[in-house]
Design a binder for these strands. Structure first.
Lengths: 200, 200
DNA sequence: CCAGTTATTGAACAACTTGTTGAATAAATT
DNA sequence: AATTTATTCAACAAGTTGTTCAATAACTGG
């Protein structure tokens, strides 16, 4: 085995043990000793690769963010060349679908980080990512559908609905396929949430 | 000063220092020593009142949950005696208004706990609270408005929209009054969030 | 006002985690 | 086979944890 592969393999073992431990006891309650014990690796080895558990977390998150950004951006400029409602809708579906398929491939890690025992800042980072990528569409449509609700609240509703659906999906034991969830996300856009909370 | 008052005062000083520190460095990064130093109190005193920082957190949360439950429940049975749409709508508004006024009175604490550096489990606890209290209304209306979206996703959208609006409101520097936010919550019920995320 | 109860203080304790270092060993490279 | 690189293991000081205890301070009831 090559040196590079050897490093990669060690780091992979550490990462997997780390994600397992986040699910077991939460990021904040796990120690570097916990990680190395679970990974079957010396504590010294950990500190060769990472300065602390926060850097390990950051490196994992950075990779996820880069790939999600890529998946979301890839089809994002397409709409400008599309004209019919069907073309636009299909394009939106493909953006969701592509991103969800990647998220699904990192399901265990994503679920761990999105969980209450994971890293709330990571959820916010993804939220900010989606915000920036979709911000033009958001502001452009605001006013047409919003009934003059303040723009900041409108954005909160839209972003949180989208991302909490994904979070809920990640938490499920028998989740829908990424394709099915993309479909649910498409349909969810036409539902006013609080119509469902009334006293009728 | 009476003994009971003396205890209450000490605990209040500790609680205030604790909330300040959550905002400064986050719950997970603060130590008991940090709290007692900030509170100007001996570390021994802390351990007389609380076994650790988790118990302190829990006691604060329990009080908030009890009061929010009270505020939400008080007007919740009214609708059964109401008949017109205006009566029902007014009743809903009063439930929101009452709860929001209490939350506003505990704004600094609520914001600290709801923040990413606070306690995500507390947000989930409130979410569960609202879920249980409104669950009858939720299921009753499902199907009429949902376009056959799976019930679990419908609930996620409704609960997260409601609570993230409140969270966003708590984070604001110049927030609306509780009355104004109750109005925003009422109006937000008729907005389909993802209509705003399209590629048109 | 005094004696008894209760709260606070400050110091000490062992156990644990942290991040660092260095020497020995093991594995890959050339 | 000699060199570079990765891993291991042990030791280190510094900080936190939760507990204990004796001394001090503050309230309480008579």
């Amino acid at each position: 085995m090559k040196q590079a592969d050897r490093n990669a393999k060690t780091q992979q073992i550490i990462k997997e043990a780390f994600i397992d431990l986040i699910n077991e006891k939460g990021f904040n309650n796990l120690t570097v000793s916990d990680i190395t014990r679970a990974a079957g690796v010396s504590r010294g080895t950990f500190y060769v690769h990472y300065t602390d558990k926060y850097e390990l977390l950051t490196k994992i998150e950075d990779e996820l963010v880069a790939n999600i950004t890529h998946a979301l951006s890839e089809n994002l400029d397409e709409p400008l060349t599309k004209h019919t409602a069907e073309e636009i809708s299909g394009s939106t579906y493909r953006v969701f679908n592509k991103a969800l398929n990647y998220v699904d491939s990192e399901r265990i890690t994503m679920r761990a980080l999105f969980s209450p025992n994971g890293h709330p800042q990571f959820f916010n980072r993804i939220k900010n990512l989606v915000d920036v990528l979709f911000t033009d569409q958001l502001t452009a449509n605001h006013g047409r559908f919003s009934d003059a609700l303040p723009i900041d609240y409108t954005k909160e509703i839209a972003l949180n609905s989208l991302l909490n659906i994904v979070r809920h999906w990640l938490d499920k034991d028998n989740p829908e396929t990424p394709d099915e969830l993309a479909d649910i996300l498409m349909r969810s856009r036409f539902i006013a949430p609080h119509e469902l909370i009334t006293f009728e």
